[in-house]
Nucleic acid binder design. Sequence first.
DNA 1: CTCCAAAGGTTTGGTCCTGGCCCATTGCAC
DNA 2: GTGCAATGGGCCAGGACCAAACCTTTGGAG
Lengths: 243, 243
Amino acid sequence: MPAHGRRDAAAAVFRPVRTRNAFEETVERLLQAIRLGVAAPGERLPAERELAARLGVSRVTLREAIRAVADAGYVESRRGRYGGTFVAEDLPGLPRPRRGAAPSGVELEDVLTLRRVLESGAAEAAAARSLSPADRQHLRVRLTDATDVAPGEEAEYRRRDSRLHLAIAEVTGSASLTSAVADVRTGVNELLDAIPLIGANIEHSDEQHRLIVEAILSGDAPAARAAMDEHLDGTAALLRGFL
Amino acid sequence: MPAHGRRDAAAAVFRPVRTRNAFEETVERLLQAIRLGVAAPGERLPAERELAARLGVSRVTLREAIRAVADAGYVESRRGRYGGTFVAEDLPGLPRPRRGAAPSGVELEDVLTLRRVLESGAAEAAAARSLSPADRQHLRVRLTDATDVAPGEEAEYRRRDSRLHLAIAEVTGSASLTSAVADVRTGVNELLDAIPLIGANIEHSDEQHRLIVEAILSGDAPAARAAMDEHLDGTAALLRGFL
DNA sequence: CTCCAAAGGTTTGGTCCTGGCCCATTGCAC
DNA sequence: GTGCAATGGGCCAGGACCAAACCTTTGGAG
């Protein structure tokens, strides 16, 4: 009996339906928006009523989550017309000193495998599509943002880097692919938080980012995939070395 | 302001936290297990207490879901020692006459894009890995199963086809990739339910399946990707034509 | 034949979450 | 300045969901 194989597939289908409660999930989403640079410092989040509807969560729950995120210093709420919840200009640093929770090798390989599949696939798909002028502009802007970070601003670099990778997924036109990339990116960022950021690596990444975007913009799908593969291999090697 | 691009990424991060309620989610998972062939006709599901724990759902909720699925004729419960919940030997046909709910073109392309990224990526990743003898055997068994369906058994073919594709994801060793493939596969199956199954297509698929598995077993990652790409292109063309 | 283990079936009390409603604050339009 | 609309803030009744019991059925072990 191939019970082994069956168990793996079964684990995929019978995985938990709801990982956390609504409050915790909502907090994670807000932090994800901030850490991936989807909501930049100073920017306003959607109004509570709208955001609650979008997240499929009651306003009470959303407000509790916002409260928690605000207490941690990530956002700030203002009342009145033209009020709202705003991302803090000065974001707090890492809340996670990684208290012994080093990810196992299996977990690491799991994330890296999924990441490679999703991100290289997204790069290829983006290049294979005929992009609208808005899409092309979007990519260029994100690329510039990412290569244009003041030295010493590691956290900001991480956000813009994520935002660029996310933009590549966006221009594939596939909403579910974009969601998947956002999730895997969050996982990768958590891992990256555990290792130091080196200047040489950033410069190297900048160049690779340029190559990737160039390949996508010129519609060269194999080149886009190859460039993304190489880029990801670098990070993967770094992570494997440190963990 | 690049509000357009921002909106897409925001939609990914601010997507609903909880799509359905626990009951509905659980029903979907049970049906997914059956339709993907993870639980074959006649097979026993895990005991309620264990399954509830795995799904992260209370036993009460799980039982309600099982009850619903049993009422629809998919499973049957037996009490007493060596009892349990068993997948029906004769599964009901399609419950979905697709009442005008034809998927929009955008949705279709969304699923197909994600599918291509995930499944071709999985094939490549599987080929790039050094597979254990158990993995190799698993792939071979699933391949044989899929090419070995009695004529006229379209529903059974669909299940074994899914099971083979799922096996490819399994042998990548990445649990999250396997989950993602299972989900996208469910989406594709729903689309496929709307179009007829033609004998010639099955034969063609059988041959492509052989090529894919062969490439994976021989460790030829580019060939595995290429073979999977071709295979998926066939189905994609079929779907685009019918919808 | 008796006991027991493993499974499904049932009940209860409590917690989380929601949907709806109203209040408080703010700044622009008039 | 007055009105108003958009926003965050607060409250409550009821439903969904859960954890933890306990009951019933079944068939093998001894």
